[in-house]
Nucleic acid binder design. Structure first.
Length: 953
RNA sequence: GCCCGGAUGGCGGAAUUGGUAGACGCGCUGGUCUCAAACACCAGUAUGGUUAAACAUGUGCCGGUUCGACCCCGGCUCCGGGUACCA
């Protein structure tokens, strides 16, 4: 009987499904372990071999943990809201729900064939009402909470209202939009609408007019991480900056906690670095510069002691800037405002008004892409107005330029051309003065950006080093009351509205122009039907097309929908208790499962999903839903699997194709050829002719009667015809082979090219495993003889190696260890039950179907003659997992390489516990030692126990 | 530009972190079985050298530390990923 993987795999997949083998239930007797995969967006193209890589790894680990006695939660679901299904709906009119359902069915089928140990009853789909109910619910919580700096946590809005009623907002410390101070009396005197407007400044989910990334082609707003190089991540369409009224999440309130939290979790350093950079914390100082009074064109600033500060009082507010280098303030020779800055209009002199207006208009119309591709283009305009350096009362011209961004700091800077390259280029271009204030460096050609050195030309900080100077200036600034030390983050609040159809509707209605949350009992707010998936003629989002899109009382509902990351931000919590109809997750479930212990997924989510999810979780932690502050304790990024493309070479202007090694003799054009009609780089000419009509009459120049194709490693993509479909491979080799081969390909975290040729090796290995358990005529047979010492040693070495490798996610070396073990065992035809029974169990996380089959035959006793598949008696469980016993692998001798001056000359077997001094004696006493010493006396003998002995001559 | 990674045979990759570099697999070469093929099995396979060995050279490049370096330190080159007027 041969290794019939088709029968075996179908049988066990059916068995697992029917017996709900992997159903996870709360069990306080066992420690829990939660293994999570990043759930897929089910695209129309189906899976390629790259997708299951992480799933296979997590499945191996889940199965392994179960065998080690853990109660493992290992669920799978689908991130179902997304643009492709909606774009398809716009083109074809097919409801995105139908497309999505079809795609999910295909994904389920493909994943099902790989033998994953998912708890299928916990499957969640983000577009289903019983799931998005809780996405909407969480949004309401965000809307009804604010961030209290004193508590360093989210607090209910109702509490804030109580405080306002009692004492106004003077003492409230919140992460919020800037709000004027008011007393309790003033608060009470405000109208309902005015009060709501103020509360909006505090809410964690809030509505505000912000400059957003607008993609006209997609007809929607995008988050920062959805814009790549000024183009939309999906589709690659141009993105503009446009002010719009949008929902936003106050992610920035959690910036410090998101940063601190990284210290407590087991993620790779590179991923943590990515998040740190994205959060972009910088320590600096805010300083107010007074605006010089308008004294008319051509006038000069008086050099004597200035009387400007505060003299002109309420006329013009001071100009607030942010800098990380307050030490360089004496080198500041001009100021720069962003074109959107609110002071632009106030301070511009009549003479400069035209020029400034023109510039601001030009800057506004500049697309994001232009800005990014023309970074080196230096533009700007003088306002005609001056600021006063508070430290030396120098008059400094104020310019406007779009290299200063509105969204960061205060949207205004003090430019120090000597020590900042952008300011330097600007100063050179517009011929502005440059004053060096840090010693060293040559500023004749470029800025000197050193963060270390001695201050010069800087009044009271002269002679200090940069670090002390920064402290001194911040201190002085605070004493003078003109500024303060300040921490800035690059992380912005996330825009949360999408002008699309296929997303979660907001549980929000409008009354008197102000938004209010729906009552929780009215959830879920179902996504309505629309006749078309496009925006309305008036430019409103598609939901505005829905009939009766109002509350029962007739108040209009919000027409935008939530973005893709809404549904994926807390799905891991829902898996703990997926059918709960009274809450996102029940108390008992979250108390038991706590948090995700292992999360496996791609790096592409480093600054998107993984930031939002952490934010979302921290909020849910604050309001007592999540049990831990961080959602994912350990995270592994699986590498990408690249494609291996094949090429044919067409002689230019003909329909003749020349084989790879002869191509240099002709003028040729390489063409991608579908990898399914190429085997081991040899083209199947008949299939090629049928592949495309153009090639039906193709002629070939062959080498050795074959057409050899060229190859290259590229991204796996339809257009390169290099997509490897896992179904084909499962069909040909079986799921166990595919699983082991994907692991064998290389380290999990590394990107590597797919190479189908190597899969044969793993397939041979499994066939060999199968044969070990069968006699020559193919009948199942194990000997009940006592195992040999040697066999036990192989087994226990393998147990130790597999456990070790599995624990550190080194699955590629684990597969190698299996192969070595099988080579050793089959070398002396070891078919002892005592060895092979445990071996099957050991193999089961990696190749679960064949392992179950073999193990069941072991336990089921003799397989009746002629019967292919005896009825399964059960699955491998933790009780049967073999224990590693050191006594079998203990060595009592070690064979030392004996080196002379670092060169190994002979080997010497010595007892393992021999003390160093004895080893030294034995080596010197050995006959060969004299030969290699050649009459010299040894200078030194270095003994490294269980490693090497080196004699220095 | 800045921040991370990485570079080892014809190929994918090992080397339990300073101790016999190239495990394991692919590919290739030769052999056994077969009428033949497929499957399977056996042997070989870093480079130079030799009938074979001895020996010499070898982990991107240059240098250093060490009895000993793929591994640690300094200086480069190339490749991959992230990020970018963030003051």
């Amino acid at each position: 009987m041969d290794y019939n993987f088709k029968e075996i795999e179908a049988k066990w997949q059916k068995y697992w499904k029917e017996h709900k083998t992997f159903k996870a239930e709360i069990d306080h007797e066992k420690p829990k372990y939660y293994v999570l995969d990043m759930f897929p967006y089910p695209s129309g193209a189906g899976l390629h071999v790259g997708h299951p890589l992480g799933y296979i790894a997590s499945d191996i680990y889940s199965r392994y943990k179960r065998l080690k006695g853990f109660n493992v939660l290992h669920p799978m679901g689908y991130d179902a809201y997304g643009l492709p299904a909606e774009q398809y709906a716009i083109q074809t009119g097919q409801h995105p729900a139908i497309t999505t359902e079809k795609n999910i069915a295909r994904y389920r089928e493909q994943l099902g064939k790989l033998g994953f140990s998912f708890d299928l009853e916990r499957e969640i789909i983000t577009s289903e009402p019983n799931y998005y109910h809780w996405t909407q619910w969480t949004f309401i919580q965000l809307f009804e909470h604010w961030y209290c700096i004193r508590a360093n946590a989210a607090r209910p809005i109702s509490l804030l209202i109580d405080i306002f009623n009692e004492q106004g907002n003077r003492k409230v410390k919140a992460e919020c939009t800037e709000t004027p101070i008011f007393t309790a009396e003033e608060w009470k005197a405000k109208s309902e609408k005015e009060q709501q407007e103020i509360l909006m400044n505090y809410r964690l989910a809030y509505l505000s007019v912000t400059t957003v990334n607008w993609c006209p082609k997609l007809g929607t707003v995008l988050a920062n991480d959805e814009v790549v190089n000024g183009l939309s991540e999906r589709g690659g369409y141009p993105v503009e900056r446009k002010p719009m009224l949008q929902w936003a999440l106050r992610v920035s309130a959690y910036a410090e906690r998101l940063l601190q939290g990284l210290e407590t979790i087991d993620w790779t350093d590179s991923l943590k670095d990515m998040q740190r950079n994205w959060i972009g914390k910088s320590l600096g100082c805010e300083i107010n510069f007074d605006i010089a009074p308008a004294v008319g064109a051509g006038s000069t600033c008086p050099n004597e002691q200035s009387t400007y500060p505060n003299e002109q009082g309420g006329q013009t507010p001071p100009l607030q800037i942010f800098t990380t280098r307050p030490d360089t303030i004496f080198g500041s020779t001009f100021m720069v405002l962003c074109p959107e800055h609110e002071l632009v209009e106030t301070i511009t002199t009549p003479e400069q008004k035209q020029a400034v207006d023109d510039y601001v208009k030009w800057a506004k119309n500049r697309s994001e892409r232009e800005r990014q591709t023309e970074v080196n283009k230096i533009t700007g305009v003088f306002t005609g107005c001056y600021a006063i350096n508070p430290f030396n009362n120098q008059k400094i011209p104020i310019w406007i330029a779009d290299y200063v961004l509105a969204g960061y700091g205060t949207g205004a800077i003090m430019a120090v051309p000597a020590h900042d390259s952008r300011d330097y280029k600007f100063a050179k271009h517009f011929n502005l003065p440059i004053i060096q204030v840090v010693e060293g460096g040559d500023i004749s050609e470029e800025a000197f950006e050193a963060k270390d050195g001695t201050m010069i030309n800087s009044d009271f900080i002269n002679g200090m080093n940069v670090k002390n100077a920064i402290d001194a200036v911040v201190k002085k600034t605070e004493e003078l009351g003109i500024g303060k030390g300040k921490i800035n983050y690059r992380l912005r609040d996330a825009t949360f509205s999408r002008q699309r159809y296929w997303g979660e509707p907001f549980p929000i209605y409008y009354k008197d122009g102000m938004p209010y949350a729906l009552d929780e009992k009215d959830l879920p707010l179902l996504l309505p039907e629309v006749n078309k998936y496009l925006p309305t003629e008036t430019g409103e989002p598609p939901l505005a097309r829905a009939k009766n899109w109002t509350t029962k009382d007739g108040y209009p509902l919000e027409t935008s929908t939530m973005p893709g990351f809404a549904g994926s931000s807390a799905y891991y919590l829902r898996y703990m208790d997926p059918h709960n109809s009274t809450g996102l997750v029940g108390q008992e479930a979250v108390d038991y499962w706590q948090t995700v212990d292992l999360y496996i997924g791609g790096t592409e989510h480093a600054t998107g999903h993984l930031i939002y999810s952490r934010f979302w979780n921290k909020f849910l932690f604050d309001i007592g839903i999540a049990k831990t502050d961080e959602p994912f304790q350990k995270l592994i990024n699986q590498g990408m699997i690249q494609g291996r493309s094949n090429f044919v070479y067409r002689i230019v202007g003909t329909n003749k194709f020349v084989s790879y090694n002869l191509r240099t003799n002709y003028e040729i054009q390489p063409l991608h050829v579908d990898i399914s009609i190429v085997e081991n780089d040899i083209l199947d000419i008949e299939k090629f002719k049928q592949w495309m009509p153009d090639f039906a009459n193709a002629e070939f120049i062959l080498e050795d009667g074959k057409y050899v194709c060229g190859h290259e490693v590229e991204k796996m993509s339809k257009s390169f015809h290099n997509v490897q479909n896992p179904d084909d491979l499962v069909e040909k080799y079986g799921a166990d082979t595919l699983r082991m081969y994907e692991m064998f390909l290389g380290p999990l975290e590394q990107s590597k090219p797919w190479d189908t040729q190597g899969i044969e090796g793993v397939f041979r290995f499994l066939k060999k495993v199968w044969r070990m358990y069968h006699q020559n005529d193919g009948e199942f047979f194990l000997s009940d003889e006592e195992p040999t010492e040697r066999g036990l040693k192989v087994l226990h070495k393998t147990i130790r190696k597999i456990e070790d490798d599995t624990e550190r996610f080194s699955f590629n070396t684990a597969v190698s260890a299996f192969m070595i073990a099988v080579n050793d065992l089959s070398d002396w035809k070891c078919n002892k039950r005592a060895i092979l029974e445990p071996f099957a169990i050991l193999l089961s996380p990696y190749a679960p179907h064949i392992a179950e089959e073999l193990w069941n035959k072991c336990r089921g006793g003799v397989c009746p003659p002629g019967q292919v598949n005896p009825a399964p008696t059960g699955t491998i469980s933790m009780e049967q997992y073999p224990k590693f016993e050191e006594k079998y692998v203990l060595e009592n001798t070690f064979t030392y390489p004996i080196s002379f001056n670092g060169k190994t000359r002979f080997m010497l077997e010595l007892p393992i516990d021999m003390p160093n001094s004895e080893i030294e004696k034995s080596v010197l006493a050995h006959a060969d030692t004299q030969k290699w010493l050649a009459g010299n006396a040894p200078k030194k003998v270095i003994v490294v126990p269980k490693k090497i002995v080196n004699v220095v001559v």
